[in-house]
Design a protein around this nucleic acid. Sequence first.
DNA 1: CATGTCGGATCCCGTATTCA
DNA 2: TGAATACGGGATCCGACATG
Length: 303
Amino acid sequence: MPLSRHFEIVYMLLHKKKVTADELAAHFEVSTRTIYRDIDALSAAGIPIYSSRGKGGGISLMEGYVFNTSLLSEQEQDDILMALQSVATATIPQVEEVLSKLSRLFKKEMENWIEVDFSPWGSQNSQRQLFTLIRNAIITNRVIKFRYYNVAGEQSYRSIEPAKLLFKDKSWYVEGYCLNTESYRVFKISRMKEIVVTEISYEPRTVVAATDTKVNDLLHTIEVTLHISAQGAYRVYDEFAEKTITQREDGSYTVTAQFPVGNWLDSYLLSFGPLLIEVSPEQVRTRILSHLETMKRNLNVPL
DNA sequence: CATGTCGGATCCCGTATTCA
DNA sequence: TGAATACGGGATCCGACATG
């Protein structure tokens, strides 16, 4: 998928001012020729990328060019996802802006830019249908009713005026005005059962408050601090919001972010492999270590 | 259509050589 | 001695063709 590679190239260039085509080729496991074609595409898309020849040369961005890093902030990714999935609903102002920014960079099929995986942990195919159902309810302004299980496992029946679909931490959420509690709430789609789109229509309410905290409350999250080596730059900038990242003097990164507690977090952290230098808090570190011990035993690696 | 391979062109730069 | 020139290695660039 070339578009995501284009993004990564730009991000690498932002943080290492000069990179040779060979390095990029090795990093992406493609040929240098392909890298040059990417550079071509990027500069054709209006990114001030240039390369200097000869010894000590390499590919770099124009001096002083500050890429709008908010381009990839979590919020905007969410917006893009939403926009891509429900093109007709473009009622959220930021979406327009983000899409035009993107289309300026990548004029062509940006449908492929992000792969939406509706079933990250298994074969929950039904989530896709739910998603479509809720999306249609939003578009047509219909109240939906459903049975809901909260974090504590308690169930309740809700009627909401759905306002917005959110994609966060690998799951879909619907935000809406809950008629039972008369307030805006966020619901995790996978915990919604027996969803019914009613005939009752509603007038879209004016302001939908941004609800990062609400979503986090819902998720049982924990604040985790990661120390990731400089070689992990592309993952850091790909996967974390700008404001959570601090670069150290030696080029490595410290990231502090909210994560959902559980096995997913463990696998996620393990996926960093040698890029991960430190992790806190202690309880998370211990879990990772015990996973590694188990793996060692399973694979019969001598201690 | 994106990618890889090949071959060659071109450039930059440090170093060695030549020349006035 | 100092300036001009030659050379070679490292790097970008590009076209043509093959592959899947």
